[in-house]
Design a protein around this nucleic acid. Structure first.
Lengths: 282, 282
DNA sequence: CGAAAGATTATGTACATACCTTTTCGCCGA
DNA sequence: TCGGCGAAAAGGTATGTACATAATCTTTCG
């Protein structure tokens, strides 16, 4: 039996040859109390992906309600006619993506409320502008080397640490859209003093060179000061998106940036992270 | 040899008994041209996690530069003294998290530029307020059932579809912080007409009940209109964060929300997604 | 000399097996 | 009745093995 299932799956997954219609091992078996039809795999892609889709489908279609307990790995394994490891891989991935919660001995449960899993990707401004088919430019407005505490203070860095302070403007088709004020820790990235930033923007330069282990962001809405309004070509008080990002490397701060973008020329947008949703496209 | 390594690892990982000092199979072997020291595992947690940490460490410490090719699975396997599958699991996870890029036959490479992996979680306002230790309240200001196109238009929904339109205000310690204008697709969630929202806020109610498969967001900065300013208790023109979210379920729109939050009373913040960074805490 | 065919290599998936860890549940005795 | 203790259940990790898939390299032949 096992050998037979495996054969049919092998042929079914990799569509070499004229795609034979998917065979569902379970439909042939004895009546399984309603589970038979629902547990059909679609034969597209790797087995563990099919299992993921099948399980996520049950959840999204409401057949497995939030908080409810799933069949255990052994049961799922015989239900879908695959080995326990394959089920385990699929289920573990779904758990990692937030669809399921697993507890030893207790079992696997449909996650209640994924409310905190919405997320918003933050992209490099140059990429965004380029993708919109516009011309991206930037201009360094100011650049100075100094030590922390001399006029500027970077809270998470000890006073006296050498830093590079940059100020620059980003343009889309010639219109200013974003102002950037950046501090770079010269203890971590000493090479930056030799870089002129004639061609490549500081953000790009850093991200291409310095690996980072973590970063934190804060996004706020603020009214443009008179000075910023003049730089960005809007009237004073215009609503602007303010993004603060601090990037860390081996628990040391690498760079601290404040971006300021004109409200009606820039927005953040994105879909939910959960990549299985897009993979599943249900 | 293999049996010996396995034994020592078994004893080393699960610290049953008085934690024996970690043994590094490789340090005993013949000189491996500098690789010996760097490839030490730390003996904490599962093997595949140790491999993840070790590899990520090489990258973050700059020993493996971006774009560089890693040893293949077989080499890593013998380097760390574990099976190829264990290496595969660790490396595949790091690839999934964006540290590495893998191509068949070509090999595994350190990812260049993780710029698009910054992200920002979006939480329920009630959770945020509660976590800050403040008192959360909300008030439904308006509620009506209508059909799409009658005064209000929900772009992604066919005209004539029955919808519920809600307007409500969220308070933190009695101060208004967020205005919410929500549309709910009654074809998908008919039960919502029977809910009074006396106790539980619409967002919470929906998220607890209706599974969603995808959601997209847009965040912008806008100046408060006179009407909104009055509701939120700020002066007209104050900068506000505007969040638009549309949630889908099985490719059908479920709900469309516009949140408007006062700039200096609300912000979005979060760390980078990459969970291995926190796991690694390097 | 160049293109097609074939060999090679590295990753990807699947299964069988074994054993470990955690948590729950029920039994038994105080 | 209650507390503790042990068995059992469910998930977690690791290995060996086998084969599939996709690039890349090499060889051969027109």
């Amino acid at each position: 039996m096992q050998g037979l299932v495996r054969q049919s799956l092998t042929g079914q997954n990799r569509g070499n040859g004229p795609a034979s219609p998917p065979e569902h091992p379970l439909q042939a078996g004895p009546a399984q109390a309603g589970l038979t039809l629902d547990s059909a795999l679609d034969g597209r892609g790797p087995l563990f992906d099919q299992i993921k889709r099948a399980v996520a489908g049950q959840i999204l279609r409401g057949r497995w309600q939030t908080g409810q307990r799933l069949p255990n790995e052994a049961e799922l394994s015989s239900l879908y006619g695959v080995s326990r490891q394959t089920v385990h891989k699929a289920i573990a991935l779904l758990a990692r993506e937030g669809f399921l919660v697993r507890r030893r001995r207790a079992g696997t449960f449909v996650a209640t409320g994924r409310r905190d899993r919405f997320a918003l990707p933050i992209e490099d401004i140059g990429d965004v502008v380029a993708r919109e088919g516009r011309v991206y430019e930037f201009r360094i407005r100011d650049r100075k080397s100094l030590r922390n505490g001399e006029g500027i203070r970077w809270p998470d860095l000890p006073d006296g640490t050498p830093i590079l302070a940059l100020e620059c403007l980003h343009f889309s088709d010639g219109t200013p859209i974003q102002h950037e004020r950046r501090l770079v820790n010269l203890d971590v990235v000493p090479e930056v003093v030799d870089e002129s930033f004639d061609v490549v923007a500081p953000s790009r330069w850093l991200v291409d060179r310095v690996p980072w282990s973590s970063a934190d962001h804060t996004v706020r809405a603020v009214n443009a000061t008179a000075e910023m309004a003049a730089l960005l070509g809007v009237e004073a008080g215009a609503a602007c998106l303010s993004i603060r990002r601090q990037t860390m490397h081996l628990s040391r701060p690498v760079t601290l940036v404040h971006f300021l973008s004109v409200g009606d020329r820039f927005s953040l947008s994105g879909s939910s992270i959960t990549d299985s949703a897009t993979e599943l496209n249900l």
